[in-house]
Design a protein around this nucleic acid. Structure first.
Length: 246
DNA sequence: CACCAGGCCGTGC
DNA sequence: GCACGGCATGGT
């Protein structure tokens, strides 16, 4: 069926991307505006080659996942190829702290407001996502005024503990999970999202409200190891499928 | 008015 | 260890 770039970029693993009027996608990453219409646009750019995980064989993984059982086959066949992005650690951490008890549309709005307030303008109306240094003097009142609500103190804690994000890349999965959860507002679900979408940890299996429904309805006697070694990617297909089915 | 969204924290048992 | 209420905000 080919790639489903819209699902990959706008389906809930990143909140950096926008769909433009001409059908292409753009984001402020790597200190610049990056624009992509098809995956081929990413192949010649070293940053995007890495970001889109182009060295991984997603077609082989897709076939293997679809062969596991009928539900997964349905989920895979309901959409094009979904990829796992390799995002910046800090951006992923704040993005998924924002995501708790929230919806994708509003998360994206909060991401934009943080960028406008604390980031840097690189083109007219396009801002970088702020670094921890950019947000060094942020206050809880400021963050609440942007609409982050009860997540404001979590963001402040993440700012103070940002260096931790550079120390977990080589840890065993469970230890990396535990270390991430020492930051306030990061529990098991948020931690696994950060590890998957930023640290290339494909054994993560985040259980949000949608995935809990999938597991209860279709896999009541299974645990994430059933999907090994495609836990994270299987979860993405199931998440996309159940959400599109309502 | 209610209930929900890519959950987690604090408290109580 | 598990259960439960509370939590900011905007959409339906």
């Amino acid at each position: 069926m080919g790639e489903n770039l819209r699902e990959t970029l706008l389906g809930g693993q990143s909140f950096s991307w926008r769909e433009d009027a001409d059908g292409s996608f753009s984001a402020v990453l790597d200190g610049r505006v990056v624009r992509v219409r098809t995956l081929e646009d990413a192949a010649s750019d070293p940053f995007l080659y890495d970001y889109f995980d182009l060295s991984y064989d997603y077609e082989a993984a897709r076939l293997a996942i679809a062969a596991r059982d009928d539900i997964l086959r349905q989920a895979v066949e309901s959409t094009g190829t979904i990829r796992l992005l390799k995002q910046d650690h800090w951006i992923a951490a704040i993005s998924f702290i924002l995501s708790q008890n929230n919806n994708i549309k509003r998360i994206t709005g909060l991401y934009d407001r943080l960028s406008r307030k604390y980031g840097h303008e690189v083109e007219a109306g396009r801002y970088t996502f702020p670094t921890p240094e950019d947000m060094r003097d942020a206050t809880e009142d400021e963050l609440r005024a942007l609409g982050t609500g009860f997540r404001a103190p979590f963001i402040l804690d993440a700012i103070s503990k940002a260096p931790l994000l550079d120390t977990i890349g080589n840890l065993p999965f469970d230890e990396a999970m535990e270390r991430l959860q020492t930051i306030k507002g990061i529990g098991p679900k948020v931690a696994s999202c950060i590890l998957i979408f930023s640290y290339q940890r494909r054994e993560g299996f985040p259980l949000d409200v949608w995935m809990k429904k999938v597991m209860k309805e279709y896999y009541p006697d299974r645990d994430p190891s059933y999907f090994h070694p495609y836990e994270a990617l299987s979860q993405q297909y199931l998440f996309s499928w159940i959400r599109s089915r309502g």
